[in-house]
């Protein structure tokens, strides 16, 4: 990722990595008007993300990272600035992007398989034709034996795997994740991190990941964007050049500890707030 010069919209450029540019934001700001006055949630955010990149946004609560994700997804309009997906303005949700939340948001009356097929149904696609694909994805997230189970029969980690499978059947170009493992215990979170990395790497999916867990961000990402609150701004971008594939052992690497420390120093006084 490189800092984008403000030259307005252009044809899809090529990033520093030599790969296709997937997402760009130009001068993105968001001001919420409340009865007590207005709050600047985001100020002048310029980022660029290339195909296949895993980019994390880290910051304390209120730094606007979730707001930024909502704007990129097309769910929330920006006050000023633009978001480009493959060079085109985003003003509404796109089938090229899939969204994952902190809660799995499964429908309790549907089995795992039917939850995974929900996007296909909503898009009016041929569900029968997509069933084999859905089963492959369910197998990939390790839930093959649970395809006929209902959500409440599954643990929290397994439910989040279903949510991952649901978004992957979409075959999204870009996967947007808003603290997807924030509600899981540390061990499950680690397992999910490894699984997410394996799946998205092999499918070459571009990932935008929001978290307040620095370790998780550094472990997963090619780039970490550090954000600070009041107003929500990008305070720095870090390249994570740890070799891939990464394993739990990667965390022993002295470079890993250095990167975590760098993220902390970019957060500055806000980590102690």
């Amino acid at each position: 990722m490189s800092q984008v010069p403000n030259i307005g919209s252009e044809a899809p450029a090529t990033g520093a990595s030599g790969r296709r540019r997937v997402i760009e934001t130009h001068g993105l700001s968001k001001i919420f008007t409340l009865s007590e006055g207005s709050v600047t949630a985001l100020r002048d955010v310029n980022i660029a993300i290339d195909e296949g990149e895993f980019v994390s946004f880290v910051g304390p609560s209120g730094c606007g990272k979730s707001t930024l994700l909502n704007i990129i997804s097309g769910l929330l309009p920006a006050t000023t600035g633009t978001v480009l997906l493959d060079g085109e303005d985003i003003t509404e949700p796109s089938h090229k992007m899939g969204f994952m939340f902190q809660t799995p948001v499964l429908l309790p009356w549907r089995t795992v398989e039917k939850n995974v097929l929900l996007p296909a149904e909503v898009q009016g696609l041929n569900v029968e034709a997509l069933r084999p694909k859905a089963l492959d994805v369910i197998e990939a997230v390790g839930l093959k034996d649970f395809r006929h189970a209902y959500p409440k029969q599954l643990s929290g980690g397994m439910q989040q795997r279903v949510a991952l499978a649901r978004v992957l059947t979409y075959e999204p170009e870009v996967l947007l994740m808003d603290e997807p493992f924030g509600a899981l215990d540390e061990f499950t979170r680690e397992a999910m991190n490894l699984e997410l990395m394996r799946i998205t790497q092999s499918a070459g999916i571009t990932c935008i990941f929001v978290t307040h867990n620095i370790t998780e961000a550094v472990f997963l990402s090619d780039k970490v964007v550090v954000m600070t609150p009041r107003p929500g701004e990008v305070s720095g971008v870090l390249d994570i050049d740890l070799p891939r594939p990464r394993e739990i052992g990667t965390m022993k690497d002295p470079a890993f500890a250095d990167l975590i420390f760098e993220v902390r120093s970019l957060l500055g006084r806000h980590v102690h707030a």
């Binding site: 949700p93 969204f99 939340f101 809660t103």
Partner: peptide, 17 residues
Amino acid sequence: PADARKLMRSMKATPLQ
């Protein structure tokens, strides 16, 4: 839940859906 509405919107579901 707000997240369920958001999920459906992110899939471009119609209000009827």
